[in-house]
Amino acid sequence: MANLLKAGMFYFLGVFALGFILGSMRLFFLVPFTGPVVAILIEIPLMLLFAWFFCRFLTGRFEIPPETNQRLVMGLVAFAFLMTGEALIAILLQEGRLTDFIMTFDLPENRVGLGAQIAFALFPLIQSYTDVGAGR
């Protein structure tokens, strides 16, 4: 169980760090020229590509077995940390409230982002099916 929690935590940290960097670049350089929806659609493939390979690395490094429940736990731990981190940034840096953060999911670009975050959380599980076929 400890390996699952560590893998989920590292998965979150790696993707969150890249997301913070790319998100800042998106806000300052892309959004003014493309608008928020197109900007997020440009960022998401990079994030998901990184998340896919980073997830594969971590499941191997922490020897996470391909069982559904094990992979779901890893993804859910990472997703819980991700949503908590995003909420804290919104509350602390933007001086908002939790309800304000939740209301931002009414914006189309944040709905698209949430879909990508759900995919990120499911990557460990999805990879368990691809790993079996790869002889792992």
Rank of each mutant, 00 (worst) to 15 (best):
M74P: 05
F81I: 09
E95W: 03
L48S: 02
L27V: 09
L88M: 15
N69G: 08
R61K: 13
F28Q: 14
F10W: 15
L18W: 01
L114A: 12
G133N: 10
P45S: 05
I40N: 09
F81S: 05
N110F: 04
G14S: 03
A87P: 11
Q127S: 13
A80L: 08
F105P: 12
I118E: 02
T68I: 11
F53G: 07
I21Y: 03
P65R: 10
V38R: 11
A2C: 03
G75F: 02
F123A: 07
A78V: 04
G23F: 01
N110C: 02
A7N: 10
A80M: 05
I102L: 15
G75L: 01
E63G: 09
G96K: 04
D100A: 06
T68R: 13
V132Q: 07
F50K: 00
V31C: 06
A119N: 00
G14I: 03
F79W: 08
R136D: 07
I21P: 10
F33V: 08
A78T: 02
T130V: 15
V73A: 15
E67G: 09
A87L: 07
A90M: 06
Q117T: 11
R56H: 12
L30N: 09
L93H: 02
E86C: 14
F33R: 15
T34I: 05
L49S: 12
F16I: 00
G75Q: 06
P32I: 02
A87K: 06
L30R: 06
V37E: 13
E95Y: 04
V15G: 12
Q70T: 11
Q117Y: 06
